[in-house]
Amino acid sequence: MAVVDAATATVASRPVGGRAGAWWLRNLEIAVPAGVVALVVLACFVGPLVLPVPPPVGGSVLESYLDAGSPGHLLGTDPNGNDIFSRILHGGQSSLTVAVAVNLLGLAVGGTLGALSGYLGGATDTVIMRVLDVLIAFPSLVLTLAVAQSLGASQTNTVLALAFFSIPAFARISRAATLRLRELPFMAAAQLCGTPGWRVLARHVAPNIAPQLITFGMLGMGIVIVIEGALSFLGLGIPPPAPSWGNMIAQGQQSLSATPMLVVWPCVALFVTVLAFNLLGETLRARWSGR
């Protein structure tokens, strides 16, 4: 019976305007981008192991500027004679790894800080939010540069640098969601019953704000992939010759009019991946808010 009730409630509160035949379409909205994400992940992480692709670095200059479709080089080669397809797959590995790590850090640290801030309010709230304001006002470029220069440019350090920006973003969302939650009667009830704060946070706040944070994480994946690309593009991220989509675009830009495909391929990879994450995030958001 409870199941039936829940189902009725869902139907009643779904956003209006949907068509009767849109059921399969709605699931397609999740399945297609999720499939694309899965495909990209699979291609980048498993592809190089099972596909006959040459290594992404150490090509011979004799093989430079080969056209797409050349034997053994699906997308041709770059000025250093490296296989473009292989570089795109390996570049994707680093982009995805960085994006996942940055978002997990943001989710864990930022989500907790934001929930604490929103739940406790008062001085704690003020201090946490002010510190995060400073971080937000601080240009990512400078920090990344500093990290890259003092600790060395590497994947780990890019993650650390970018986490400084994902943490405040997650914290803000988590705080706003917690504040909204705090106005609901059951929270007051829990507090009145003398439930300890940590327990309220863990049992009532966390599960309720999780959907919003996870949804933002999907959008965050897209954002981080783009920013990581930008840093590499400016030479501040993953250092060449190791491939990344950003540094491939930067490299191709130098001969944009002569060999535009050097730019186009990594751009396509970046675009498709980011689009898939964005679509996934948007659909999830629409569904959660339609609850």
Partner: peptide
């Protein structure tokens, strides 16, 4: 009646 995805209320 409300026609929705697969069910009618």
């Amino acid at each position: 009646r409300f026609v929705g995805r697969g069910r009618t209320v």
